[in-house]
Design a protein around this nucleic acid. Structure first.
Lengths: 297, 297
DNA sequence: AAGCCGTTCTTCATTTTTGAAGAACAGCAC
DNA sequence: GTGCTGTTCTTCAAAAATGAAGAACGGCTT
């Protein structure tokens, strides 16, 4: 016995008629003409060798056979929907948006991205080197690399990268003119840069204000300008030990004293839970986190 | 976002191309032209927004996306096959063949069938009142109502209806001429009817031969003739108590003595396992067995 | 190197499916 | 009763899908 059931789409029509109770209502739901629906049902009845509906002037009423077949037809529909959903997922551009303070996008970090992109050419990356704190929960980015003064939002997926340490730095030009403080207690009288931001930088500023008076602070809106002010010797500033390693070695910045314990903060990789559900984000996180952490070890 | 995936049949084409590796080979498998296959795949790629196959002059090679979707497409195919199979089952004429000794098709039994047929007008019955033992395992019938002298074949589905009891009966005319035996031991010298059959009747004959000599037996090939001989007073015969209730009450047959224990046999409803797999046979068995057994209680 | 085989793509006539419009019918409200 | 609404069926022209045939291409065998 040959398998005459070829036109699987007719099951859509069958389901629509079952649900709507008439070929006319079904045709509207399906967006086709009523005779088409009637013809497809007729064809289905023919290949199955069954009467699926009793016709009368009030509509199509499913027969016992149709009711028996209905759950199986619904299973077919479910499978079709699953396929369509999965296909839809696959058709989405697989974009991962990463936000971090621009100082974090160093050559060694870029190497990690380069390696990953070579392995997964179909995955796109967007880098958001914005200094302002994008809201992961609101979907402004998928992944954030951040140094946090306080515990992260509990909903965010969180990987520990390193414990960042901070200390006060000055340029040789500043040292020549004003000397450098030898300890936090020695900071009084010196000039400092700070920013108008919240988050970690705010916490650093609060620490400074415990040791110097507010009028000694020069406030910048751009991180780059603030750092440049320190480099040019106009004031002292608090910097991440890891990020000034190069300048310290080159002698263009001088560490005033050992990093105070209370200035350490958690360097984290944060992933929005929504994004983490996407397989490519999860896979990338697994790849990236250990390699990124290795840079800071 | 509207659901553009309407033509579920395209999944058949997708599967064929995945399996055959080319649109040409797939077109042969599907019994359509090669350009049709190529066009259906093209349509599928369009609604999914995906490239499903890499084309070259050696064929269509599935992409990663196609490989990801393959299991879901197979699930769809499985659902379609399940639907087609079930529909095929339903399209078969739903015939239940029942065999029993014709004496069993009494009016009270017919009432049960009538009631069932009224509830399930789509189910056909065939009654095989054959006296010979049809082979259920060979598919000669679906259900047998039988009184068995020995345990039934273990493969058969088996419902106990009653324990049938048998005794020796004679007509008043016989009694007037020869008297009636008062016990099995008293049977010697009397004439008896028997048959040339196997099974239960054979077992009854063997019991007789333990009490009378073989030359006292009149052998019949038809049960009806054998019973008629008893009724006309030409000989005595072993009868089922239940089946001669009417004649006994009317006085046309006289029970010679209480039914001997060794003559009891199991009255069973037997169903072939093949037939029992058909839902209508199972459902009928569930309906029929208790009602049929009630007649014999 | 030449020829064959299996493949994809293109083209166009043919076949099939579809849609629009209308007839006919039954239930229902007024 | 009358008209309205929702329904099925019928008809036929229009649209869409299909198939057959052939060109082009590359790998393979001889």
């Amino acid at each position: 016995m040959k398998n005459g059931f070829q036109n699987w789409s007719d099951v859509r029509v069958f389901l629509a008629v079952c649900r709507k109770g008439s070929t006319l209502a079904a045709s509207n739901a399906l967006g086709v003409a009523q005779p088409t629906v009637a013809r497809r049902i007729e064809a289905l009845e023919h290949v199955f060798g069954l009467t699926l509906f009793e016709r009368d002037n009030r509509g199509f009423r499913p027969t016992d056979a149709a009711r028996t077949l209905l759950p199986l037809a619904e299973a077919l529909e479910t499978a079709a929907e699953a396929l369509a959903d999965r296909a839809h997922d696959l058709s989405q551009p697989r974009l991962i948006r990463i936000t971090a303070y621009s100082g974090n996008f160093s050559p060694r970090v870029s190497d990690i991205f380069t390696a990953y992109m070579a392995m997964h050419p179909d995955i796109q990356f967007e880098f958001l080197p914005s200094a302002k704190t994008l809201d992961l929960m609101a979907g402004e980015a998928d992944i954030a690399l951040r140094i946090l003064g306080e515990p992260p939002e509990p909903e965010l997926i969180c990987r520990h990268i390193s414990t960042a340490r901070f200390s006060v730095y000055g340029a040789p030009a500043y040292a020549a003119k004003h000397g450098l403080p030898k300890s936090p207690e020695d900071m009084k009288g010196h000039c400092f840069v700070t920013s108008d931001r919240t988050g970690l930088l705010k916490r650093l500023e609060e620490w400074m204000l415990r040791h110097v008076s507010p009028d000694r602070l020069q406030r910048y809106s751009e991180i780059e300008l603030m750092d440049a002010a320190v480099r040019s010797g106009r004031a002292l500033g608090i910097r991440n030990l890891r990020l000034v390693e190069g300048e310290e070695k080159a002698g263009t910045l001088i560490r005033c004293f050992e990093p105070p314990e209370e200035l350490s903060a958690q360097h984290l990789m944060l992933v929005s839970p929504d994004a983490y559900r996407r397989p490519e984000v999860k896979m990338f996180t697994k790849f990236f986190a250990p390699r990124y952490a290795a840079i800071f070890r």
